[in-house]
């Protein structure tokens, strides 16, 4: 990786005044934030606050009601199709369930993006697939079907597929959901390692506190009551110094003072 001079950080993702929702239900109201290149950026919040909705908008699966999303200098909300395609070529997404194609082996899954988007001969694709699988410690599982490997392995295979084309930006939808603490910590280490060695920008949606504290450079926190970002910054700092009691409660794993949670 070429080390860039320590000039100001370049913006990888810029979300400008975006309103998102389904039909008439607004879920996120006029939100703004930036993700810088090479950063591990975590989107967090309680259940139903619109984390996954935000992610779906960032990767172009849903269209915002208004506002713009600019990724690597290209606005994916205007003149959608061609811009989106151009941006997606430089993005990788790890879905919550891994979303591996169940009819293909692990190796075929990882090879698919290369077969579709590059003109590499089959033998080099095969080599790269092996290297990618080695990076996520899945050597030896090339010919297994997704149904034959464990949940953590599926996530790692999904990650290998997401990284297949060496994307500049990687998105993760709840990477540690449904994993045991050790596997989850391993995945965190993997994320940190990949970020370190490739300077990949990472956007992670999660609400697993240990994972947030170990990987995140910066977080934003969404809240479903105000439908906005209620906090932005380093997780350790927010935990100790946030002005917003809800944010402190979230990071310290405390129950809200009134019984709202029980009644909802």
């Amino acid at each position: 990786m070429i080390n860039k001079p320590a000039e100001e950080k370049r913006v990888a993702i810029n979300v400008i005044d975006m309103v998102a929702g389904y039909g008439e239900d607004v879920i996120l109201n006029h939100i703004n934030f930036k993700v810088y290149e090479g950063e591990i950026f975590v989107i967090l919040g309680g259940s139903g606050c619109g984390k996954s909705t935000l992610l779906k908008h960032l990767i172009g699966l849903n269209h915002p009601i208004s506002g713009n999303i600019v990724i690597n200098g290209i606005d994916i909300t205007s003149n959608r199709e061609s811009n989106l395609q151009q941006v997606l070529r430089e993005c990788g997404i790890l879905f919550q369930s891994g979303a591996l194609f169940s009819s293909m082996t692990v190796a075929e899954n990882v090879a698919l993006p290369m077969q579709e988007h590059t003109d590499l001969p089959a033998s080099s694709i095969d080599n790269i697939v092996r290297m990618k699988l080695a990076q996520v410690s899945l050597t030896g599982y090339e010919d297994h079907l997704p149904s034959e490997i464990s949940g953590g392995m599926k996530k790692r295979a999904g990650l290998a597929r997401a990284m297949a084309l060496n994307p500049k930006v990687l998105f993760f939808d709840e990477p540690s959901a449904g994993l045991d603490p050790i596997t989850s910590a391993e995945l965190d280490q993997l994320i940190i390692r990949l970020n370190g060695s490739y300077n990949t920008t990472m956007v992670i949606v999660t609400h697993e506190l240990p994972s947030i504290f170990s990987v995140a450079h910066r977080v934003i926190m969404l809240d479903k009551r105000v439908k906005k970002i209620i906090a932005e910054g380093q997780p350790q700092y927010l935990r100790d110094n946030s002005q917003n009691p809800f944010v402190r409660q979230f990071f310290n794993r405390e129950i809200e003072s009134d019984n709202d949670l029980l009644i909802d």
Partner: peptide, 12 residues
């Protein structure tokens, strides 16, 4: 199971 979404995002 999000596989179709995965296709979209892989630009396929």
């Amino acid at each position: 199971s999000e596989e179709v979404d995965a296709l979209y995002t892989m630009n396929i």
